[in-house]
Amino acid sequence: MNFAEIIAKGGIAIWPLLLLSILSLATILERIWFWSRVLFREKQILNRIIEAANRNWDLVEKVAREHINHPMGNFVYAPFKYSNPDPEILHLALESAADEQLARMRKGDKLLEAVIALSPLLGLFGTVWGLIKSLSSIRIGDLGTASTSGVTLGIGESLISTAVGLLVAIVSLAFYRLFQAFWSNQVRLLRKAASQLEVIYRQQWFREEDEIVVADEYSFMNVEPKKPPTSDPWAAGEQ
């Protein structure tokens, strides 16, 4: 049975199933393209960012800006929108950026969930509708005669919609679970990157604060008090 025969014999439910299959296929292809660009470069970008942070924190902004179109680069660049943030502001900025990137990674999930839920139901509806049409033409006197052969053929054709609905749901579910696994791995990776960057930034932040405190104490200890002006006119004349 070819595609044209499936469409012709699928019944009333085959057209909604065809629409759902097109939407599901378009979403799957778009997500495959998205994840292929994300997964192939993320570890390289993360290693460059951590290496730059260990050498000089100012280099992190440059590396992140170079990869601003990648979720990892966009995530790391978020805190640099603020001028010299303290560690708490850095933490909040990274957390907000991670939520935004993870939400973008779940694009299309709701559509796949709808396809997975609706496809089997539409297939079952098409089968029930076909059975109703087939069985409504049976008369008691026709049982056991050659006139019932068309009824069995109609029952067989009515099962096509169920098969198509299950096929669409199974394929959509398989890719949906795959994308969920990718997403879960991104949650772990972004959390790891944020922790490493916060540790490095806090170390630098507190080291700079200690240097400022030591410099203030040193300058305070070496300042000579000013002599008050004298009010003795004779002393002024002698000078």
Rank of each mutant, 00 (worst) to 15 (best):
E51Y: 11
E30S: 00
G150T: 03
G237R: 15
R106S: 08
A97T: 09
Y82P: 01
K107V: 04
T162S: 02
A163G: 05
L121S: 14
L17P: 06
G156T: 10
L29M: 11
I7Y: 12
T127N: 02
L102N: 04
L190W: 06
L178Y: 10
L102G: 02
I170P: 00
L143T: 08
R55Y: 14
L166R: 02
A163L: 12
A93I: 01
F175Y: 03
L29H: 10
L20Q: 08
P71L: 08
I45Q: 05
H70Y: 12
G141L: 02
D232W: 13
N185G: 07
A13L: 13
P71C: 01
G130A: 06
R188W: 09
L112Y: 11
L166N: 06
Q239M: 10
H70P: 10
K9A: 10
V76G: 00
I155E: 04
L167C: 07
L122W: 09
R55I: 08
K43G: 03
F206Y: 09
H70G: 15
M221C: 00
R65A: 14
L59V: 09
G10W: 11
W15K: 09
W35N: 04
R104N: 04
T127W: 12
V38T: 11
V63T: 10
L118D: 03
E100Y: 12
L178D: 00
N84Q: 07
N2Y: 15
L118M: 12
I32G: 09
M105D: 00
K192Y: 14
W57G: 00
R37M: 14
A169C: 02
W129F: 01
D58V: 14
I28R: 05
E198K: 09
G150P: 07
P71W: 12
I32E: 06
S21T: 05
I140S: 04
L197Q: 03
V214H: 13
I50E: 08
K227Y: 15
S172E: 08
A114G: 04
L112G: 00
Q180F: 15
W33P: 00
L118R: 09
W183Q: 00
L143N: 04
S96Q: 07
L166F: 07
V213T: 07
G165W: 15
G154A: 04
E51S: 08
A174N: 02
Q180M: 12
I212Q: 12
S161H: 11
K110G: 03
A98E: 13
V164D: 03
L143Q: 03
V199E: 06
